[in-house]
């Protein structure tokens, strides 16, 4: 357990995190690995955990009939995979596939939600770390939506 707590504390997502909180979050965390081509999460499945990437890159994909599989974002070391566990109905809305060997911290969503409910200071601290990621992704999605590199931008 101490090993995981150390790894949590050293992940960029938790930079400057209170050691007491790192200890709490450490109780919800475990180390995981995925071979290339394996899925970290799949659309429609319960969002029971999220991942903090330590090594390797992950592709976020959407697929539909006649359109094939579209990768709309790739994520790498230091970044967060999965946000649907934050809000009901706690189900994934896309697939996340390991592009190469991925090592990550997996954090149990129900565990962290429970601890955040019990200690709102922890919950607020977590929100302050999730919110910038969500906003960045929203802004990026807007830019992609504009198709600015298209011939008739």
């Amino acid at each position: 357990m101490e090993g995981v707590e150390q790894i949590v504390a050293e992940h960029p997502f938790f930079a400057g995190f209170d050691p007491a909180y790192a200890h709490l979050v450490g109780h919800c965390a475990k180390n995981v690995r995925f071979d290339p081509g394996r899925y970290l999460l799949q659309q429609g499945a319960p969002a029971d955990q999220f991942y903090l990437l330590r090594h390797g890159r992950v592709a976020l994909e959407l697929s539909g009939p006649g359109r094939g599989t579209v990768t709309f974002q790739t994520l790498g070391p230091g970044e967060l995979v999965g946000v649907s566990w934050l809000v009901p109905p706690y189900r994934w809305t896309y697939d996340a596939k390991a592009l190469e060997l991925v090592r990550a911290i997996s954090i149990d969503a129900a565990c962290l939600r429970g601890k955040s409910e019990a200690d709102h200071d922890l919950g607020y601290e977590m929100m302050k770390r999730f919110m910038p990621v969500l906003i960045q992704r929203l802004q990026a999605a807007r830019l992609q939506l504009l198709d600015i590199y298209g011939a008739h931008a």
């Binding site: 599989t69 579209v70 990768t71 974002q73 790739t74 960045q136 802004q139 990026a140 830019l143």
Partner: peptide, 23 residues
């Protein structure tokens, strides 16, 4: 190199170019 979206087998980055700046 990053692209806005990738259909074919693509192992590079997908996302906006500004995201590369922080990396």
């Amino acid at each position: 190199v990053t692209v806005d979206h990738a259909l074919q087998p693509w192992h590079g980055h997908v996302g906006v170019v500004t995201a590369l700046i922080s990396r």
